[in-house]
Amino acid sequence: MDTEEKQLIKQILDGDTRAFKIFIETYRRLVAHIVFRMVANSADREDVCQDVFVKAYQNLHGFQFQSKISTWLARIACNTCLNYLEKRRLPLFDDRALEEMNFVSHNDDPYTEAADSDINRLLRHYIDALPVLFRAIVTLYHLDGMKYEEISQILEIPAGTVKSYLFRARRMLREKLVELEQEVLC
């Protein structure tokens, strides 16, 4: 962990509001990536992001500097999202859902194939339909450039499982894409 990060945390703990502002500005993108991908309801996303930073502020004194601050904060974000989903009794993860992955979008704005044929947007729509743990893994890996080991610490699952889930998620997306391309060709 670099000394700049340590200094920033020390300043926040000393009650420096400007230091906490820098902290929020630095990590808001990371938190948004996780929350936006894990929480389907767009009306709740910003509140959940806010909760993440408030929790981080409350627990900062207990931060042991044993991991990167981004790893620690990402764990708070993931746990906050999982609590949110559990409270609303939204499905977290089950193997049945994986096998017969149902690509019904959880997104708020209904997507119609006729309205948008852009593959990228279509795929992002499918990403939103992946099981929540897969969504967390692909987000941390692709958007935040995290290694298997870091993701394993964040989600508290073995690094090997992170890798196999990442590959499985991408394979599911690719299969969906191929299916679609074949439909277009027929």
Partner: peptide, 20 residues
């Protein structure tokens, strides 16, 4: 490659301006 491109796409993750 299409799948990777979509996964790498960092759009639509914007928080409101007064979030901080």
């Amino acid at each position: 490659q299409d799948v990777f491109e979509a996964l790498d796409c960092d759009e639509n993750f914007d928080l409101s301006k007064n979030f901080t």
